[in-house]
């Protein structure tokens, strides 16, 4: 395969940035690998994927593992993912209080994008600010 370092210009228009917002309902009906595929297929297409409800730790672990196996240096230019979610810091008050109250819901809103296109500018408990670049 030829080395491609810039946007492929294929089926995705290079003019804009596509954002996929996936509802908790939609995710609930999927198996772990189906969720991961949905996310990574979106990211491979250079989309920003926003999950209404985040992943379980086990799913995050598999997402990292899967992401690693799909990075192909010298290949299609995929360098991995950037991911941010609320509430910030598992050790933050939210996480701890959440656990005290028997709430083992995963992080809520989660933003995932291609590592080379998305950069977190600022993050705290109430705000995630990201910069998305076009190529």
């Amino acid at each position: 395969m030829a080395e491609v370092t810039t946007d492929d210009g294929g089926e995705t228009p290079t003019e804009g940035i596509q954002i996929d917002m996936i509802s908790a309902d939609r995710m609930d009906g999927l198996r772990t690998m189906e969720k991961i595929r949905l996310i990574l297929d979106g990211v491979h297409d250079d989309n920003i994927v926003i999950l209404e409800s985040g992943l379980q730790p086990e799913e995050e672990s598999k997402l990292i593992e899967r992401t690693m196996t799909e990075i192909n240096p010298d290949g299609d230019g995929f360098t991995g993912i950037e991911i941010e979610s609320y509430p910030g810091g598992s050790g933050g008050d939210n996480g701890f209080l959440g656990r005290l109250m028997g709430n083992d819901e995963p992080n809520t809103l989660t933003v995932i994008g291609p590592a080379d296109r998305i950069e977190t500018l600022h993050k705290d408990e109430t705000l995630i600010s990201t910069l998305v670049t076009r190529q």
Binding site: M68, T79, G80, A115
Partner: peptide
């Protein structure tokens, strides 16, 4: 070291 991205 664990990461979500690796760029050669």
């Amino acid at each position: 070291g664990v990461t979500t991205k690796v760029d050669y």
